[in-house]
Amino acid sequence: MTPEERDALAAEYVLGTLEAREAEALRDAMATDAALAEAVSAWERRLAPLSALAQPEAPPPGLWARIEQSLNPAPMRRQWRFPWPVLGLGASAVAAGLAAFIVLRAPPPPAMMTVLLTSREQPAWLVEARGDTIHLAALNRQQVEPGRVAQLWALPQGATAPTSLGLVPEGGRFSVTPASIRPSPGMLIEITLEPPGGSPTGRPTGPILFIGRLSPASGT
């Protein structure tokens, strides 16, 4: 692609005239082509003032509630119950005898945990943080599209950019001990789709596959 062709394509993407397949291909290409991503960003800045030509209009009253619901799909308690038996950590007191058994056998309770959800709010990964280490266990079969990799990120509360915790290995379980950050309550954990070898920019470039926020696991 010549620089002129690249720039023309970036301009048409920002303008919105690319068809669905072309727009998707360009989004994919941006993940590995920094010059293309730069050209798109420059066109976004050039044309941004045009958004002011749209007539402001009040959205329907229930819309905020719907957005909030999508961001908090279920009360925390319900999320917790789901994976317990898989990991032998003891559910709420289902049966006293079973609970006693689990308490004896279980590792020390996790300090923090979350369930990473897909964009359709389906549970995909159980995340536990104990001390400095983050443990992940897949709750179902995970498939990454061919030629791409899944990359794990953490965004501590108050931070402006996520930190890479490395690529997600194949197989259901793994642990990471980040060098530069400590697991903390409110920390966002996300897995994004990236080009082979991981994000070339040090920041997520692909779509978020799974996301969740660490919460203290007290009360279990």
């Binding site: 749209a54 209009e57 509360q157 409110g186």
Partner: peptide, 24 residues
């Protein structure tokens, strides 16, 4: 970005009329 959900609601209140116009 730091996880403040109240900030998101404040942003929605301040920007949703303009942004709904953009989508409309």
């Amino acid at each position: 970005a730091g996880g403040d959900r109240n900030a998101l609601q404040a942003l929605y209140q301040a920007q949703s009329v303009r942004l709904f116009g953009v989508a409309m």
